[in-house]
C-alpha cells in the first residue's frame, strides 16, 4: 500500500525511542496513518510480509500488546508465532543468550520481545540476525506505546509540537512514561510529570520534564492528560499509603480535569484501574477519553514499524547505535 520504496529508517531494530530523530518518528507515524485507513476497510490484509516469520516472545504476561503485534503481523501477511516464556521455563536454566541463539537458528524475520528486566531486549538483539522490536523491557522503554500515543495525539490535534502533556502516576516504574517523555521531547512538546515523590525517579528533572506533586497545579492548561497504571503491589503503604489516598490526591476526576484545557484529551496505556488512577465515568467519556482510540492506533503503529524494519535486508551486519555493545 505504501509506495515508500527506500526507507531512510537507519535502524535494524526498534529497541527504544531514544536515538530516534524527529524524521524517524514522523515517518513511522505517516505510514501508520495509512494503515489506520487500511484497518478500517473490510479487507484489512496485505502481503508485504508474505513468507516472513514473526515471533512474539513474551517473558511477561500481556494480552493487549501481544494481540496487537500479532494482528499487525498477520495483517501484513507474516506468519506469526507466539511464545510465552514463563518464569519457570527461564528457571530451567536456559540463559537469554541461549534462547536467542535457538530462535536465531529458526531464521525469523522479526522478533517482538517483552521482558521484565530493563536492557534484556537490547541484550537479546545483539545475538539475533533479524529485526528485534522492544515490546517493553522492565522499567526502561516501550517504544510502540509511545508511538501509538503520538499517533493518537497527532490525529486529534494535528501535531505534537508546542503541546503541553501531563504524564501522571507511577512514573518510577513505567517504561511507557520513559518512552513517552523522550518522544514528546524529541517532537517539541512540553512534558510535565505529576506524581507523589515516591513514584518519581530521583533525577526526573534531567529528563526535560517539569515535575509537580499537585494535580491541580500540574494539570493547569495542559492539552493532554496521560494517566499511568498503578500496580496493586505498589499501593498499601509501600509507595503510597492506600488506594483511597492515591485516588483522592492523584486520581483523575472531573474536578482535577477541570484545571486542564477545556478540550484536553485523556489517555491511558491500559489496563485501567478504575477508581484508583482514573474515575470510571471519565474513562468512558467519549468526548474526552481517547483510550479506545489508542488501542486502534496501536495496531497501525505496529504495522508501520514491522513494515519499515522489514525493508532492510535481513542477515546484514547491523548499523546504527544499537550495534555497539552498551
Amino acid at each position: 500500500m505504501s509506495d515508500i520504496s527506500s526507507s531512510d529508517m537507519p535502524f535494524r531494530h526498534l529497541l527504544g525511542i531514544e536515538g530516534l530523530s524527529p524524521s524517524d518518528i514522523s515517518e513511522i507515524l505517516d505510514l501508520a496513518d495509512e494503515y489506520v485507513t487500511q484497518n478500517r476497510q473490510v479487507d484489512k490484509k496485505r502481503s508485504i510480509l508474505g513468507g516472513r516469520t514473526q515471533i512474539n516472545l513474551f517473558f511477561e504476561t500481556s494480552t493487549r500488546t501481544r494481540t496487537s503485534f500479532e494482528l499487525a503481523g498477520k495483517r501484513l501477511g507474516a506468519d506469526v508465532i507466539n511464545m510465552t516464556a514463563t518464569a519457570s521455563a527461564i528457571k530451567k536454566g536456559e540463559t537469554l543468550i541461549d534462547t536467542a541463539a535457538t530462535l536465531n537458528a529458526m531464521h525469523p524475520d522479526a522478533l517482538v520481545v517483552r521482558h521484565p528486566h530493563s536492557g534484556a531486549v537490547a541484550l537479546l538483539s545483539q545475538k539475533m540476525d533479524c529485526s528485534v522490536i522492544n515490546a517493553g523491557d522492565g522499567s526502561h522503554e516501550h517504544p510502540t506505546q509511545a508511538l501509538l500515543d503520538a499517533l493518537t495525539i497527532r490525529r486529534r490535534l494535528g501535531g505534537l509540537h508546542g503541546l503541553t502533556v501531563a504524564i501522571c502516576g507511577d512514573i518510577l516504574h513505567s517504561r511507557v512514561a520513559r518512552s513517552n517523555i523522550m518522544l514528546l521531547n524529541i517532537m517539541g512538546a512540553h512534558v510535565r510529570a505529576i506524581a507523589p515523590p515516591t513514584l518519581l525517579p530521583g533525577a526526573m528533572d534531567r529528563m526535560g520534564v517539569e515535575v509537580f506533586h499537585d494535580m491541580a497545579a500540574g494539570l493547569a492548561d495542559v492539552d493532554i492528560v496521560m494517566m499511568l497504571r498503578l500496580q496493586n503491589e505498589r499501593m498499601n503503604g509501600a509507595y503510597v499509603p492506600s488506594t483511597r489516598e492515591y485516588y483522592h490526591f492523584f486520581g483523575l476526576d472531573r474536578a482535577k480535569l477541570a484545571k486542564a484545557k477545556p478540550e484536553a484529551l485523556i489517555m491511558h496505556p491500559g489496563p485501567m484501574n478504575r477508581g484508583v488512577e482514573i474515575d470510571s465515568e471519565l474513562a468512558d467519556d467519549i468526548n474526552r477519553s481517547v483510550i479506545r482510540e489508542q488501542v486502534e492506533m496501536g495496531v497501525a503503529v505496529r504495522m508501520a514499524v514491522l513494515d519499515l524494519l522489514s525493508r532492510r535486508p535481513t542477515n546484514q551486519p547491523p548499523v546504527g547505535p544499537e550495534a555497539t555493545d552498551t
Partner: peptide, 13 residues
C-alpha cells in the same frame, strides 16, 4: 500503619 514501621499511613488524608 499500626506503628509497625512497615506501611506508610494515609499521611495526606
Amino acid at each position: 500503619k499500626g506503628l509497625a514501621g512497615e506501611q506508610m499511613a494515609e499521611l495526606g488524608l
